[in-house]
Amino acid sequence: MTTSTPSTTRSAAARPADRAAGASRSRSHVSRRLRRIPWISCAIAAVFCVLWAFPVYWMVNTAFKPQSEMLSSTPHFLPQNPTLDNFFRAVGQGNFLVYLQNSVIVVAGAVIFSIVLGLFAAAALSRFRFRGRRTIMVFLLIVQMLPGTALLIPQFLIFNSLNLLDTYWGLMFAYVAGVLPFSIWVMRGFFLAIPVELDEAARIDGASTWQVLTKILFPLVMPGIIASSVFAFIASWNDYIIAYTFMKDQAHYTLPVWLASFSTASGGQIGTDYGGQMAGATLFSIPVVVFFMIIQRNLVSGMSAGAVKG
């Protein structure tokens, strides 16, 4: 884990340079491609795209279908009579906006908490040498090995006695518990990728520890902050079982719990309302997909930069 590639230390700090390099590379690609288009590669990629996009396409397709088209023995690959009924039914199932609000509050809280706390802790673990540091690192690793549902048991009992179940705080702390060790671990990798000479130079210029952190280090680990925020976001936004176990009042459900509740809904008599469920899944996914499309460049370049010092 200590090997470093030639470009590592540079890429976190100097991405524009990489981009320029990438641009010149793709120009040379173009000229070559005029001579030889990689048909086989394109074909494989096309098959891959169809396979990988199919589930999402099928979700959207189903969401717009009336019930009769959905339950037909020969599937329709496009809705014959597109309808928005499924969306209305999905939003009408309980209170969509309340669940959205619950999810946003709890997840935002958990992400902010774990990133802010994790940033400081990662700085300490990467920039200072003190007794117990190794113990902490080992602890952070071991926590990752607990099955996700293991912590759920004691948290449930403890939060119950503190009357924290069925509250935003309880759920948020449960998410922080799951996410914080991982965030510290990931961000520490990003700190380590920054040459320590930078701090030392600043110190010689008389900067305080705090100034070194805020003026020099934090801006440089921004890709790491983004990357770990995204991981923290994914982990808590996707959680189903903790929210399901903790939240008793339906007004406190989060979106995943709401979505899964379609399984046996609508009277238990007609089974899963797949149209409504797929419409709900579409609504649930759109914001995340948009968000991912926007940040993906940062995330991926950030990850590969931090990767080198995992």
Partner: peptide, 29 residues
């Protein structure tokens, strides 16, 4: 600077807290 940190924290906590209470108020049950 330390005060600034504490301040930033309190603001963040307050934000979350206020969000909580507004959400919690709606159930009324």
């Amino acid at each position: 600077k330390k005060i600034a940190v504490v301040g930033a924290f309190s603001v963040a906590s307050l934000l979350v807290l206020s969000a909580c209470s507004s959400g919690g108020g709606s159930d009324g049950a």
